[in-house]
Simulated assay, not measured.
Amino acid sequence: MAEQDERCRILVMASGNGSNFQALIDGVASGSIPNSRITRLVVNRAKAYATTRAEKAGIPWEYFNLISNGFLAKGEKDEAKTAEARKKYDAALADKILALEERPQLIVLAGWMWVFSAEFLRPLEEVGILVINLHPALPGQFDGAHAIERAYEDLKAGKITHTGIMVHYVIQEVDRGEPILTQEIGWDGEELDALEAKIHAHEHELIVKASAKVVGEILERGKK
């Protein structure tokens, strides 16, 4: 048990296929992310294939959703009610994580389609849990959703010559947290689908490298 206690506990959040989650699983298994283990997966979409990956790897997972878990009525259009429901969902998810027997030291958002509010981030920050996110754009470019599509349009228009990816710390301002690692990706005139595939191929490597970097810092901090 002593060896387990010394390894960094990672909780992963994903919304879809989970290919970046798989890269993290493989990174931990191979030692590319050393001295760590993935303790849990959380998904917010019922059909997320990431859960199948978790089961194959023997990692516990949980589905927690805004509507299915009763925070918001299906079809609700009122903006104020939606905003309040999102805050309650965020607070409940933070409470759920803080109550885990194996409380994580690091949360990695690996294709997590949801923007967190302070109701989620603040309680975790108070106990020193770090949250990092993979975003398919360079710092300060194409924040938020559809980043690859927006970059593609600017590449075609000649406004930019390359795009990129980053892993960054999560703060309230969307995709504005301090970058951990970045990587430029050139454009060779390929169509959107090919550009997406190229970007995703690089993402897997970057999320592993960035997670390893942060894990090292967490464990080093724990020795002091």
Results as ranks from 00 to 15, higher is better:
Glu3Gly: 06
Leu100Ser: 09
Arg9Gly: 00
His168Val: 09
Arg9Tyr: 02
Leu98Ser: 07
Ile218Gln: 03
Lys47Glu: 14
Asp175Thr: 04
Pro34Ile: 08
Val115Glu: 10
Pro123Cys: 05
Ala212Gly: 08
Lys213Ala: 12
Arg150Thr: 10
Pro104Asn: 02
Ser211Gln: 02
Phe71Ser: 14
Val208Arg: 04
Phe21Met: 00
Ala73Asp: 13
Lys81Trp: 08
Asn69His: 11
Arg176Met: 06
Lys77Ser: 10
Leu155Gly: 06
Asp154Glu: 15
Val174Cys: 02
Ala147Asn: 13
Gly70Pro: 07
Lys81Val: 13
Glu205Thr: 14
Ile132Arg: 00
Ala197Cys: 12
Arg122Glu: 14
Ala73Tyr: 05
Ala212Ser: 09
Val170Gln: 07
Ala197Glu: 15
Ala212His: 04
Val43Met: 03
Lys224Met: 15
Met13Leu: 12
Gly128His: 01
Ala201Gly: 12
Ala110Ile: 00
Ile59Lys: 05
Glu3Trp: 02
Thr182Lys: 09
Gly31Tyr: 00
Glu173Asn: 03
Asp175Lys: 04
Val131Gln: 06
Gly16Lys: 02
Pro60Trp: 12
Glu153Tyr: 02
Ala118Trp: 10
Glu217Asp: 09
Gly164Gln: 06
Asn44Ile: 10
His135Asn: 14
Phe142Asp: 06
Ala197Arg: 14
His204Ala: 09
Tyr169Gln: 07
Thr163Gly: 13
Ile171Gln: 01
Lys213Asp: 06
Phe21Thr: 05
Phe71Pro: 06
Ala99Ser: 15
Trp114Arg: 07
Lys87Arg: 15
Ile218Tyr: 02
Ile148Thr: 10
Ala197Thr: 12
Thr39Met: 01
Ser19Val: 03
Glu126Ser: 15
Leu134Lys: 08
Leu98Glu: 03
Pro123Val: 05
Glu173Arg: 01
Gly27Pro: 00
Lys156Met: 07
Leu93Val: 12
Gly186Trp: 12
Pro136Leu: 13
Asp26Lys: 00
Ala80Trp: 01
Leu100Phe: 08
Ala73Ser: 15
Thr39Val: 11
Leu219Trp: 06
Leu138Glu: 04
